[in-house]
Simulated assay, not measured.
Amino acid sequence: MRMTTIALLSQSYDMSHLVASIRRAAPEFDVVMHDDPRAAHAEVAACWDPPRGAMARMPNLRLIHSIAAGVDNILSDPALPALPLCRVVDPQHARGMSEFVTWGVLHFHRRLDRVLVNQARGHWERFDQAHPAMCTVGVMGLGEIGSRVANDLQRLGFTVRGWARRPRPLPGIELFEGAGALQAFLEGTDVLVCLLPLTGETRGILNARTFALLKPGAKLIHVGRGEHLVTADLTDALASGRLGGAIADVFPVEPLPVDDALWNVPNLIVTPHMASVASSETIGLQVAQNVQRLLRGEPLHNVVDVRRGY
């Protein structure tokens, strides 16, 4: 009987380190890279930004598995087969994201953005220390990760508000629900944090209109999905002072090209999609366990609702 084959598919990311991780979790599986001839006959595709149309040419495919929490780069394939799609949910992912966002909020709240500018000029200036309650942080997206971020910031004393399609109850945090409440949510926000899933409604949501509704000089921390961001609008908002600063960790094209103008935009920190990354062992274990469940006919874990996009 032929071994079950898992093919690792990506057109932009080196997934070779996952071969050993999946094999350690399930030695009974054959794990191959996309350019291996055996990949064409694989039953499972483990993916990040897979080549468009590749999975439609795999006749034995039974399961598609993202190697991350996001699946938008898989769903964008117009030829995607109608098969179960799962994602990785790392129990430490929310903690890592909260650490990154907390750093970003403190970076702006304690005026470290201005300190770095002054350092480059050799200019000594001490800033008043404001109470965190005077800073309103608006979190877009209140799933497991967004809720953790909002709660952690509130515990630090920041005034926190959240916006989502259907927000879950979060004691002490002002909630705004649905598209009709977006304007009111933005108008009171000093630091905007994007943690939304990518859907038809949220694609391009970080645009000129959104930035114009924020308090003048507000800050942006973008750790959602690259396609949320209209990069030209971000550049214009920073240049005009409508936004006083931004941290962007995700971009429409990744890796960000070396000649991209965003690298040199004043008041913008570019980070390389590092806010929170699942470990190779976690990815390998969750992919292997779902393949085992598939073969046993058991319900899969972390199945994506393709209609909703997450």
Score class of each variant (00 low, 15 high):
Leu80Phe: 08
His107Pro: 01
Arg225Lys: 03
Val117Glu: 12
Met3Phe: 06
Val287Gly: 03
Asp77Glu: 10
Gly96His: 13
Gly297Ala: 10
Arg110Lys: 12
Glu201Ala: 15
Pro197Tyr: 01
Ile6Trp: 04
His17Glu: 09
Gly53Val: 05
Leu85Cys: 02
Asp113Lys: 08
Asp77Asn: 05
Ile145Pro: 01
Asn118Cys: 13
Arg38Val: 08
Ala184Tyr: 06
Asp113Pro: 07
Ile221Lys: 00
Asn264Ile: 02
Asn118Lys: 12
Asp128Phe: 13
Ile173Tyr: 00
Ala181Gln: 14
Leu116Asn: 05
Ala261Thr: 13
Leu18Ile: 08
Thr4Gly: 06
Val117Gly: 02
Leu18Glu: 11
Gln292Asn: 09
Arg24Asp: 12
Gln286Val: 09
Leu116Gln: 08
Tyr310Val: 14
Leu8Phe: 05
Asn118Gly: 15
Leu238Phe: 13
Asp30Ile: 06
Glu298Pro: 03
Arg308Cys: 10
Ala39Gly: 03
Asp35Ser: 14
Gly217Phe: 09
Pro37Glu: 07
Pro255Trp: 02
His41Thr: 14
Gln289Val: 06
Asp152Gln: 05
Ala133Pro: 01
Ala164Trp: 08
Leu175Gly: 03
His41Val: 04
Thr5Gly: 09
Arg24Gln: 15
Gly122Asn: 07
Val31Trp: 02
Gln292Tyr: 05
Arg308Pro: 06
Asn118His: 15
His222Leu: 04
Leu262Thr: 02
Pro91Cys: 15
Arg110Pro: 08
Arg24Cys: 04
Asp152Gly: 05
Leu63Tyr: 13
Leu243Glu: 00
Phe100Leu: 12
His107Phe: 07
Val265Cys: 00
Ala130Trp: 09
Ala133Phe: 12
Ala133Glu: 08
His131Tyr: 11
Glu298Tyr: 13
Trp263Gly: 08
Phe251Gln: 00
Thr231Ile: 09
Gly141Asn: 02
Leu206Val: 14
Ala26Gln: 04
Ile247Gln: 09
Ala7Cys: 10
Leu18Tyr: 15
Ala212Lys: 05
Ala69Glu: 01
Ser21His: 12
Ala248Phe: 03
Ser240Asn: 05
Met15Val: 05
Val89Asn: 07
Ala239Asp: 01
Thr5Ser: 10
Ala45Ser: 10
Arg121Asn: 10
Gly204Arg: 07
Gly309Thr: 06
Asp190Ala: 00
Ala79Met: 11
Arg87Ile: 03
Gly162Val: 01
Arg121Gly: 12
Ile247Val: 09
Val230Leu: 00
Gly146Trp: 04
Phe176Ile: 11
Val191Phe: 07
Leu142Met: 09
Ala184Ser: 15
Leu85Ala: 06
Glu43Met: 15
Pro51His: 08
Leu268Tyr: 13
Leu213Gln: 11
Ala45His: 07
Lys215Met: 02
Leu106Met: 11
Leu192Gly: 04
Leu196Glu: 11
Leu213Pro: 00
Thr282Ser: 12
Thr102Tyr: 04
Leu63Ile: 03
Leu229Trp: 00
Thr271Gln: 02
Arg203Lys: 15
Arg293Gln: 03
Gly143Asp: 12
Pro167Thr: 11
Asn267Met: 13
Val191Thr: 13
Asp14Cys: 03
Glu177Gly: 02
Val303Asp: 06
Leu262Val: 07
Glu177Arg: 14
Asn207Leu: 03
Leu170Asp: 00
Pro78Tyr: 05
